[in-house]
Design a protein around this nucleic acid. Structure first.
Lengths: 269, 269
DNA sequence: AAACAACGGTTTAATATATGAACCGATAGC
DNA sequence: GCTATCGGTTCATATATTAAACCGTTGTTT
């Protein structure tokens, strides 16, 4: 491992929970020698990546990272940085994939990708995803700000037979999403279209949007469902990473749970 | 120079004007060997600090910087990261120093620091700095967004005899500030109080606020003015640095000009 | 108040790591 | 099909990194 890599890894130990770290503590966290760590910190400090609290002598992230973040945001807008994951997702499932972003109380379509595998496929022709009637919307309600729910219940437009249109029905879908880490929309926006969505987080640590797959209900077998779930999770992780976020551990835990197939318990190896 | 430092320095070459850089080009920019640069880029890529555009093979800043910026902002809020410079400024001048932040069309007081040197001193008891009547406000008008001017001329409240209260008077003060790189308020908000201010920039590259010194007019000698100017400039550089910004070169140039003392041309080798 | 432990920081010889000239295959322009 | 440039690789050489022991200071324990 190069010394540059080791130096950069030190930065990972700074978090909002532990924003300032002393030399000795950082040695223990990184599992490295004190002289080594000290030299690395000096290099980081010289470049402005860390600075030292003059009182406590502890180190913390420096101002340069603010500038770099600005350049990154200007370089790679969210849409472009979600594209690769979206293509991979639609490719792996053979279905249509979308990414949405939550802005205020509105869930906007950011990008989508159709798979050429089937002649009949879900087509996204909306710019705003109804919160109560789409898988992505359920995700936003389940993992986004609480006040979103109150707003959603005032707009329970009925699109299909199965669109939830009472507060209780919607609550049921949301708590189910919280258990599995995935939002689900069973023909609740368009008949014959079944959606599954995973939440995406950004650098603020809050829900930033959702990534979802829209399948044709008649071909949504348990096998496809399993593939869709696991690929959605992969995509949500990658997009979150690209947007500077990390998945909360409770969501990772929920995903781990919902990937366990209850119907096929056989273990290979 | 450590290899870690050299690696980190590569990141400085990514800017909003040149967000993606190929290997060879980066070698030329950094003045280093190709093999070395390549390995450094690999270390950066492994840590998420850069990523490669899969099509063009060019490198650009990676998603990790967004996350680090968020941690930094949570760790060191603006007020705290301006404090040291503010204390040094009031200490060096013996006068009262303030920092203001521009939010939308309002210039808010962020923090201040009084010097104990004199019994009589300027005391800041306002939360919002009038744009037309304070040195900081003139700075915001001179170096901030253009639309601020139109807004300011609708609120030309007259505080003192010398408060500018016509569009032309205000324009005159602003163009003077643009020439010197410093805002000036000569008893325009309170009588007997004379202010001098320097603009502060943040990671967006735009004006973020101002740092200023308020002196008692009767003791504002040419010597004190000279000290105040040079210390203001030091403070503005440091606060900008802490907020992730850099000073535009035209402002540095204006400062260099206004530090030349026209009355004492002797050179002490 | 003496002893102690933990801190940030420095030195050392031993050695692991970085370096750069030359090289490779691919691509693009002429 | 020649040439220039690109991203990426190799390998002997040389330089920078490492870890253990050490230093002075600080704050706590006894």
């Amino acid at each position: 491992m190069s010394s540059a890599t080791k130096t950069l890894e030190l930065l990972n130990h700074f978090t909002t929970d532990r924003p300032e770290i002393g030399l000795s503590q950082l040695c223990r966290l990184a599992g490295r020698d004190k002289a080594t760590t000290y030299r690395h910190l000096q290099a980081l400090e010289m470049a402005g990546f860390v600075e030292q609290n003059p009182l406590s002598k502890q180190y913390r992230l420096g101002p340069v990272v603010l500038h770099l973040a600005h350049v990154r945001e200007a370089t790679v807008p969210r849409k472009a940085s979600a594209r690769a994951a979206l293509v991979a997702l639609s490719d792996a499932t053979g279905e249509t994939a979308h990414v949405t972003v939550l802005s205020g109380k509105t869930l906007y379509a950011l990008d989508d990708c159709e798979s050429p595998r089937h002649g009949i496929r879900a087509v996204v022709d909306i710019n705003v995803f109804p919160l109560h009637a789409t898988a992505s919307g359920i995700c936003a309600l389940a993992f986004g700000p609480d006040e979103l729910f109150d707003f959603a219940v005032t707009k329970l437009e009925k699109f299909t037979e199965t669109t939830p249109n009472t507060k209780d029905e919607l609550s049921e879908l949301i708590s189910s999403a919280r258990e599995t880490g995935l939002g689900r929309g069973n023909q609740s926006f368009e008949v014959e279209i079944l959606g599954l969505a995973a939440p995406v987080f950004d650098h603020t640590g809050l829900l930033a949007g959702a990534v979802s797959v829209a399948s044709v209900a008649s071909r949504f077998t348990p096998e496809l469902e399993q593939v869709t779930k696991s690929e959605l999770i992969v995509a949500a992780r990658e997009i979150s990473r690209n947007w500077g976020g990390t998945l909360p551990s409770h969501i990772e835990a929920a995903w781990a749970n919902s990937l366990k197939q209850p119907h096929s318990m056989e273990t290979t190896s």
